[in-house]
Amino acid sequence: MKILIVEDEKELVNSMVTYLKSENYLCETAPDFKTAMEKVESFDYDCILLDITLPGGNGLHVLRELKANRKTDGVIIISAKNSISDRIEGLNMGADDYLTKPFHLSELSARIAAVIRRRRFDGSKLLTLNEITIDTSAKTVSVNNKGVDLTKKEYDLLLYLATNKNRVVSKVAIAENLSGEETNIMDNYDFIYAHMKNLKKKLSAAGSPDYIKAIYGMGYKFEV
């Protein structure tokens, strides 16, 4: 999987590359508008992470160029701006998703996975981890081909952990993913425990080993 990161903040790019590499993504970077245009014109990517405010130009022009050339690269806009009009403009221009800075790397990874899944043409929207299979189009989960009845929150939780498998996902990131970005109440993270407990119970009842490990008070890890 090839990913292009168009972003001028070097340290942020480094962190993104480090995190995504462990997911076996091949990352290329473009620190400015010109490089971004060159790379986009010459190569195809599975997903492009696009900052809007770039040295030398507007990221939305890169997006326009892509669409004008009928390229099918998935695009996630990453902006510090979180303005609704920018978001709507970006999505209208054909971006697949929009992420506001600051974001969690685990969230970014989950969004990239979703974009790539959606763009797969072989119809395979299944995520398989040993005996667990997640059907992302039907939003169902099965263990050893036996369906497991999960609530929406539990499904979201499992998918989030699974797309970040073998990495520690922080409580904060999980809470934000589950309750949405605009939630006002983030005071306590207790509600994660409740959902996590139920999810683990249901999975083990269906015959799956306990893959989800709590890492001290810090977060959770889906180990396969």
Partner: peptide
């Protein structure tokens, strides 16, 4: 964003 990303890597 950098701070948060580095923390996640540290984790």
């Amino acid at each position: 964003a950098v701070f948060q990303a580095k923390l996640e890597l540290l984790m």
